[in-house]
Design a protein around this nucleic acid. Structure first.
Lengths: 205, 205
DNA sequence: GTCTATATGGCGATAGAC
DNA sequence: GTCTATCGCCATATAGAC
């Protein structure tokens, strides 16, 4: 029986390629593309450098595959939110919370996203926006329109994402600004703050 | 007459060290610490590699000096805002606009700031927060308290900065999301959007 | 204070055995 | 499909002439 080495049936097994991809993803997220060497990836994934080059033509291909892997399947959490039948205000609350949860739970994803937004060229940004985040953004715009038909839906959708991501990204430095309290780091407090901010902006229209 | 080579009197002259620092700053901002080599800095600044090592003990020292240089003197623009005697609403409008303008005018500063927030260790983040941005943050909190005494001033001050910086940071990718219009890239539109968002949040208290 | 020349090691990538 | 061994190059950093 022929089996792809990429996906095998028995649990707990990961192919060498999957192991390389996963460890590369973690390293690239932690230190950035240039600061990670193929030797480090090889050592972490417990293969030889040549072993990596059997699966990937070069370092850039490994990076791109790691990014693609990190970004895959992120919609599922949000589809549960969109599937729920409830008032749009409640959907907004759940979406904001889900976005916080995804970024907190997968710090590797969050950091790779930051690196990509900072350094990816136009072509890769377009791929990212149109192939990976397009549907979520559209659904968020649709939700905004339901809550405030006259509001600029694109601007508000972008604002929601910027607020959530920004609150998390700013956490480490905000720790050193005056007035910081322990509860500012709590998901519930952050989510409530963002939700109130957005709802007030939308209700004003 | 003995003169420090760091600061000379006649205009237009820049010492070799200043030239190295400035070119290093631009390169580090553009590509990140690891992606920049001493050879590149040397070539760009038109000195030999050994010439750099005469002024700096190692690459990290050069980077830190470049960051320090990029972050110096940024308060001046804001001090003009705080010096103006006008209603707090107007001060908020001017601050938000000034923050947009600083980040747009000095893209090098903005990118180095992003890299630092992403990658600096706790000690360097603390230095950044307490030595460089502390006063602006405090003044912003004070302004928030004037507008809404019962509001969480730290949270709102952080939110204002996150919103402004986030709008600019998200610009390249937002270009590829549905509903994007040319006017979304205009400073006036972004500033007005952020201002309205913040004012509504504050007036609700 | 700036240079040429060089030391030393890590880098991405490949050849070829098994 | 994974390895050991190696290539050629570039990295940071230094020595010593001028």
């Amino acid at each position: 029986m022929l089996l792809s080495t990429e996906r095998l049936f028995w649990t707990g097994f990961v192919s060498i390629k999957e192991k390389i991809r996963k460890e590369a993803m973690i390293l690239f997220a932690e230190k950035g593309y240039s600061a990670v060497s193929m030797r480090q990836v090889a050592a972490t994934a417990k293969v030889s450098v040549a072993g990596i080059y059997h699966h990937y033509p070069d370092k850039k291909a490994l990076y791109l595959d790691a990014v693609r892997y990190a970004f895959s399947g992120k919609e599922e959490v949000f589809n549960k939110v969109w599937a729920l039948v409830c008032p749009p205000e409640q959907t907004l609350v759940l979406f904001i919370r889900a976005l916080f949860e995804v970024l907190i739970a997968d710090r590797t994803f969050h950091r790779l996203l930051q690196y990509e937004i900072m350094n990816a060229d136009a072509e890769r940004l377009q791929l990212l926006a149109e192939s990976i985040f397009h549907q979520q953004f559209s659904l968020l715009m649709h939700l905004v329109r339901k809550l405030a038909p006259t509001q600029d839906a694109h601007l508000m959708a972008a604002t929601i994402i910027i607020l959530v991501e920004g609150m998390l990204r700013a956490q480490p430095i905000n720790r050193y600004f005056p007035g910081r309290k322990p509860e500012h780091d709590q998901l519930e407090v952050m989510a409530e703050h963002v939700t109130q901010l957005v709802l007030r902006a939308l209700q004003a229209h």
